[in-house]
């Protein structure tokens, strides 16, 4: 490749193209969207507080097996809250406007948080299903045979709900894993020592 070839290509490339007008409406919309993660975090905190309050209320009520139910609910709530906290506990990535590699690091950080976030329901669901199993046991032992089918039907419903939540979490977890893999591949390609 001669210098002339490259100079000609550069001239051709830099030939004038129409500059787009500033996207002021989009800017306003983006500014609102930047807060999107905050409601999710606030929602997690509110649900945890509500869950703890409800668990304590059930524990202190005079319902049959109230103490066990309440303790189970409390354990599940704390597990879910802890999982959410764990997902966000990754060290913060550097600012995104430093360089392309730094920006990629920030994107990798977000992808890792996202992967953790969608992995955490797995452990919550393990706890949830243990709780359901415990309920089945308590119900089978402590209730007269006449009310048993009704109780087991309700428990089966709860188990199906848990399975649906797990299915959704697995779907998003796999999607985030694929995104993370793409970003890691890109990082390898852009890295200083890339071949």
């Amino acid at each position: 490749m001669s210098t002339n070839d490259w100079t000609e290509l550069t001239r051709l490339w830099q030939s004038d193209v129409p500059a787009a007008a500033p996207a002021l409406e989009v800017i306003a919309k983006q500014q609102r969207r930047a807060w999107a993660w905050r409601p999710v975090a606030i929602f997690d905190v509110v649900v945890t507080i509500f869950g703890v309050a409800a668990s304590l209320w059930v524990m202190m009520s005079d319902k049959p097996n109230g103490a066990i139910l309440g303790a189970g609910m409390l354990a599940l709530t704390l597990l879910a809250g802890g999982a959410s906290l764990w997902a966000r506990s990754l060290r913060r990535a550097p600012a995104a406007d430093v360089s392309v590699l730094a920006s990629l690091d920030a994107a990798l950080h977000r992808a890792r948080v996202s992967v953790r976030y969608w992995f955490s329901p797995f452990w919550v669901n393990v706890g949830y299903f243990l709780f359901i199993a415990m309920l089945v046991l308590i119900t089978a032992l402590g209730h007269p045979p006449t009310s048993l089918p009704k109780m087991l039907f309700a428990i089966a419903g709860a188990a199906v709900w848990g399975a649906i939540i797990q299915g959704v979490a697995v779907f998003y977890y796999q999607a985030r894993l694929r995104e993370l893999a793409r970003l890691e591949e890109l990082k390898r390609a852009l890295d200083e020592n890339a071949p």
């Binding site: 550069t10 490339w13 830099q14 430093v98 360089s99 590699l101 890109l186 390609a189 852009l190 020592n193």
Partner: peptide, 30 residues
């Protein structure tokens, strides 16, 4: 490929190797 595209675009825009290094976050020699 993306890594080469990022680089060649900057070169066609007339950025020097040092400026390309700054934009990409790699060393000047790389």
């Amino acid at each position: 490929p993306l890594a080469l595209r990022l680089t060649v675009t900057l070169a066609l825009e007339g950025f020097s190797p040092d400026e390309v290094a700054t934009v990409l976050g790699i060393s000047s020699s790389a």
